[in-house]
C-alpha cells in the first residue's frame, strides 16, 4: 500500500484518539467540580444536617434554627408555579405547533418566547412587582411568588412542549387525520400522549430552576425571617379546602440561605451550608426524576 495513505490513516486515528481523551477530560471537569462543591457544602454543613434542622423555624440561635418555614414556602411556591405554568405552557406550545398559521406574526411570537427564556430573572421580579403586587394587589404573598416564578419558567415549558411535539412524525398525524379525526382529537389521542415524556422533562427542569431562584422573589418582597407556617390548605369544616395560604407571606430555601450567609457569626455559615446541601439534593433529585421519566417514555415510544 502507498505509504502516504498509511501515514494519513495513522494521523486520523491519532486525531480520533486525541478527541476522545479531550472529551473525557471535559466531561470529568464538570463532574468533579459538581462533586467537590457538593462535598464541600456537606462537610461545612454536616453538623446541622439533622431531623430537627428540617422541622425547626429560623431562630436567633444558630444551633436551634431550622428551615421548616423555608421548605414549606418553597414547596407551596412550587405548587402555585406548577399550577400556573403547566397548563399555560402546554396550551401555548400546542397552539403554536399544531394550530397557529405559520406567518410573520407567529414568527415574532416564536422569537420573543426564545428571548424570554434568556431574560435575567430579576427583570421578571420587577415585572411581577408592578403587575402582581401593585396593579393586581395580590400582596407579597405565596400567590405572587408562585406566579412570578411561573412567568420565569413559562418559556421553558412552552419550548419543551414544542420540541416534544415536533418529534412526533408527520406520518402519525396524517394517519390520524386520514380516518377522519379533527385537530383536537389528534391532539388529544396522539400529540399530547406521545409528547408527555418530553413535556414532563421540561416541566421538572423548569421547576428545579424555579426552586433555586432568589432574585425575583426578593424583588417582590419575600421575607427572610418567617417563624410561622401559612394556614393549612385543608380545613376541618366545610368546604374543607382553604385558599388563605395563598395570601400568606413567605420565605424560600435560597432566601433563607442568603439570610444566613449574610450574617457575621460563623455558626450561621454552617446553617447556610446545610440548607445548601438540602437545596442541591432537591435539585439533583428533580433532575434525576426528569431523566428517569424521559428514559421511561423513550423506552415506550420509539419513532
Amino acid at each position: 500500500m502507498n505509504g502516504g495513505i498509511k501515514k494519513r490513516i495513522r494521523f486520523m486515528k491519532a486525531m480520533n484518539y486525541g478527541f476522545a481523551v479531550l472529551g473525557l477530560v471535559s466531561t470529568f471537569v464538570g463532574l468533579i467540580l459538581l462533586g467537590t462543591l457538593l462535598l464541600d457544602l456537606f462537610m461545612d454543613g454536616r453538623e446541622r444536617l439533622t431531623y430537627s434542622f428540617l422541622t425547626s423555624f429560623p431562630s436567633r440561635f444558630a444551633e436551634e434554627a431550622g428551615i421548616l418555614s423555608a421548605l414549606v414556602g418553597s414547596f407551596l411556591i412550587l405548587v402555585v408555579t406548577a399550577a400556573a405554568a403547566i397548563p399555560l405552557g402546554i396550551a401555548a406550545g400546542i397552539y403554536l405547533e399544531e394550530y397557529a398559521p405559520k406567518n410573520w406574526f407567529t414568527d415574532i411570537v416564536e422569537i420573543n418566547i426564545a428571548n424570554l427564556a434568556g431574560v435575567p430573572s430579576i427583570v421578571y421580579g420587577l415585572l411581577a412587582l408592578g403587575l402582581f403586587v401593585y396593579a393586581l394587589k395580590l400582596g407579597q404573598s405565596i400567590l405572587t411568588g408562585g406566579l412570578t416564578l411561573a412567568l420565569l419558567i413559562l418559556p421553558m415549558v412552552i419550548m419543551a412542549t414544542r420540541e416534544a411535539i415536533r418529534a412526533i412524525p408527520t406520518a402519525i398525524r396524517e394517519g390520524s387525520y386520514a380516518v377522519g379525526a379533527t385537530k383536537w382529537q389528534t391532539v388529544q389521542y396522539h400529540i399530547l400522549p406521545y409528547s408527555t415524556g418530553g413535556i414532563l422533562t421540561g416541566i421538572i427542569i423548569g421547576l428545579s430552576r424555579a426552586i433555586g431562584e432568589t432574585a425575583p422573589l426578593i424583588t417582590i418582597g419575600s421575607l427572610t425571617f418567617i417563624a410561622f407556617l401559612p394556614e393549612s390548605p385543608i380545613s376541618g369544616e366545610f368546604p374543607f379546602i382553604s385558599l388563605k395560604w395563598l395570601s400568606a407571606p413567605f420565605t424560600v430555601l435560597p432566601i433563607q440561605m442568603f439570610n444566613w450567609v449574610s450574617r457575621p457569626q460563623p455558626e450561621f455559615q454552617i446553617n447556610a451550608a446545610a440548607a445548601g446541601v438540602i437545596l442541591m439534593l432537591m435539585t439533583l433529585l428533580m433532575n434525576g426524576l426528569a431523566i428517569y421519566i424521559r428514559y421511561q417514555f423513550r423506552k415506550k415510544i420509539k419513532w
Partner: peptide, 8 residues
C-alpha cells in the same frame, strides 16, 4: 400510506 404508520 406508503410507509406503515401504526400509532404507538
Amino acid at each position: 400510506f406508503q410507509k406503515p404508520n401504526p400509532f404507538p
